[in-house]
């Protein structure tokens, strides 16, 4: 794993003047350089302003939503029924299905992704590695709408034939969750593999030196050493799963799984039944905005409230992942 670092090429600079001569570096103007700098600055600014613009629009319209007389903030945070058209504004049915689908997805992506990463980084011969990585990257490049139809036309019939068509509905959460897992698999694999490979060779050599087997080295030395990177990979994958849209819009269902009350929801296994239809936050947003929007309606405003929750969740996860990386990072050499 040692990389040869080529000797640095000698610095190319301005020819040295005679000692004592006054050189004013600040005066050297390079118009070409300044243009490039300004352009790069502009590019950076565009991305920042876009983000600010999105936040402003989200918050503004969400405030508009909560300012409506029929909407109360408390209902939004505690309600277990979502149907804006008839004044049911509880975010939980959408939130729960988002979490359930992400959970099923992670159940697939996390163990499988980690195992592939360990294999690629610790075991695979270079030849296999160089073949497997591009394949995973192809998987990452497939448009998500294709995954959506894969879920609906392959995964759902498969589940129905395995578990029974009476149990598994045509639109169901399990199928969408499993496919979301496959979808984020390349992400988990490639981030985990980077983390594992960043662990210095000397640690492995030390482990071999005291007689550890390859498995022992991988599991007890390399894995813990790469923990911060792995945690970051997991969290990025979760936030990707939460934000996943097309798969759930196509395969998970097109109506929120509502309950009359929290008691009803908890007593009822239906809350976590993965084989019935459910709608996530992103799925709701796609359905309502999918061509059919009246700007003045509560449906329209509700999109932004849901979007804000989604945004807060992914932002929170990203902040947490940065914290973890900073806190648990093992710095070598």
């Amino acid at each position: 794993m040692h990389r040869e670092i080529s000797a640095r090429s000698p610095q190319l600079g301005a020819p040295q003047r005679l000692a004592g001569a006054h050189i004013d570096l600040t005066r050297q103007r390079r118009p070409g350089e300044m243009v490039v700098q300004a352009f790069l600055y502009l590019c950076a600014a565009v991305s920042i302003f876009t983000t600010i613009g999105i936040v402003v629009v989200l918050v503004n319209t969400a405030v508009h939503f909560f300012a409506r007389p029929e909407v109360t903030f408390l209902d939004f945070l505690t309600g277990i029924s979502w149907q804006p058209r008839i004044n049911a504004f509880g975010i939980w049915p959408l939130l729960l299905m988002t979490l359930l689908i992400s959970f099923i997805g992670m159940l697939i992506a996390l163990p499988v992704g980690l195992m592939i990463a360990i294999y690629l980084s610790e075991y695979a011969p270079p030849k296999v590695r160089s073949a497997l990585k591009p394949i995973l990257e192809i998987l990452a490049g497939v448009p998500t709408v294709v995954y959506g139809y894969f879920a609906l036309t392959f995964m759902t019939p498969l589940l129905r034939s395995l578990i029974g068509a009476d149990v598994v509905q045509i639109y169901n959460v399990a199928s969408a969750g499993l496919v979301v897992g496959i979808l984020i698999l390349p992400l988990v694999t490639s981030m985990s593999e980077d983390a594992l490979r960043a662990v210095p060779m000397s640690l492995r050599e030390a482990a071999y030196g005291v007689g550890a087997t390859k498995l022992e080295t991988s599991v007890s030395i390399v894995l813990p050493a790469a923990l911060s990177g792995l945690a970051a990979a997991v969290i990025v994958a979760i936030s990707r799963a939460i934000g996943e849209t097309m798969v759930v819009a196509i395969a998970a269902g097109a109506g929120p799984r509502n309950f009359a009350s929290w008691g009803d929801a908890i007593n009822n296994m239906a809350l976590v039944n993965p084989f019935t239809a459910g709608e996530t936050m992103t799925g709701y947003m796609v359905r309502i905005s999918g061509g059919d929007i009246s700007y003045n309606s509560v449906d329209y405003d509700s999109l932004f409230a849901v979007g804000l929750v989604l945004f807060a969740m992914t932002l929170g996860l990203n902040i947490v992942s940065r914290r973890i990386v900073r806190r648990f990072r093992e710095v070598y050499e």
């Binding site: 008839i86 068509a165 045509i170 359905r287």
Partner: peptide, 29 residues
């Protein structure tokens, strides 16, 4: 509207093909 939209197992879609697929795949649809 309340009676209609409060019903359980209700799928709403602007895309009529989603409805067709749903009914074609649900014996009790």
């Amino acid at each position: 509207e309340t009676k209609f939209l409060d019903a359980a197992n209700l799928q709403l879609s602007e895309d009529d093909n989603v409805l067709v697929q749903g009914i074609a795949g649900s014996k009790y649809g």
